[in-house]
Amino acid sequence: MPRSEPTLNQIETSVKELLRAEEIAALGVHDRHGRPSVSTMHIAADGLRVYVHTFARFRKRTELVRDPRVAYAVNHLPPGGYDGRFETRSLQVKGEASLVTDPDEIALAARLSLEQFPWAAGAGLFNHAKAPDEGQQAFFRIDPLEAVWADSRVSLMYRTVLSFAEGGARLAGQRPYGAGE
């Protein structure tokens, strides 16, 4: 039986929870020819914005600097396969990536990354995060512009299109999901 339609605040809370619970997303960028290029990336959430980490000599950094238009998808698929179908959630985001250069924001991205995936502490991956022109690492912040939220806890085929306030810090609205989205 379908549950009641969630409010925008309830959806925002659910999206934030998903972004903090899941650490892997498929990130789509444009390659030098304008073709889609997708990579599996770790994400660290700061509310509705996420940070991704890459290295100076990786193509992902070059592609993100050249064309900041991105999309990513993250989902929760519970154990149990088909039996867990009423707990699945997913978020498909269209956004804009910005190379993080401010030392305070780099420290924030590193801290959020360590909080979200504690295994990284043992690897020392974020112990000495520096500005992108000073080190081998780079963080990008992805500010969401529009998203599709799917939540099977509401109903099996529940989808809604989300819009974000300036900078992606909060949800600004939603509209029904339809053909052509």
Rank of each mutant, 00 (worst) to 15 (best):
P79E: 14
D143N: 14
P132V: 05
H30P: 00
A25T: 07
P78I: 08
R61F: 05
D133C: 01
V148G: 03
V154G: 07
S155A: 15
Q92G: 06
W119P: 10
Y51A: 04
G95V: 07
F58Q: 13
K16V: 13
T40F: 09
L77G: 00
F140V: 05
E146A: 13
P132T: 09
L162M: 03
V93F: 02
T88K: 05
L108E: 15
I43F: 05
W119R: 12
L156S: 09
E181W: 10
R32Q: 12
M1K: 12
Y82S: 04
A165K: 09
R61D: 02
S90H: 09
I11K: 02
V154Y: 07
I142L: 11
R170V: 08
K16F: 00
E166Q: 12
D104F: 06
R159N: 09
A131D: 08
V29T: 15
D67W: 01
T54N: 06
A172G: 12
L125V: 14
E63L: 13
A25V: 10
Q174E: 13
R89M: 08
V161N: 11
H30I: 00
Q136R: 13
G173V: 09
D151L: 03
G47F: 10
A179R: 13
G168L: 04
K60V: 11
L162A: 02
N75S: 15
Y158V: 04
L91F: 12
R85N: 01
L156N: 08
L112P: 11
R111T: 15
G168C: 04
A121G: 11
K130Q: 15
K130G: 11
Q116V: 11
A169E: 13
R61K: 14
T13I: 04
R20W: 05
A172M: 01
R111K: 15
L18H: 03
R175C: 07
S37V: 01
R153S: 13
P79G: 09
P78A: 07
W149R: 05
N9A: 15
H53E: 07
R20M: 08
E166A: 14
L19A: 04
D67H: 07
V52K: 02
T88C: 10
L156Y: 14
A131L: 03
A169F: 03
F58M: 09
R111H: 15
P176F: 00
E96Q: 12
A107L: 11
A44C: 05
R89L: 06
F126R: 08
G173Y: 09
T101C: 11
S4P: 15
M41P: 00
V38Y: 00
G168N: 03
F126W: 14
M1A: 13
A129C: 12
A150C: 10
N127Y: 02
R66C: 03
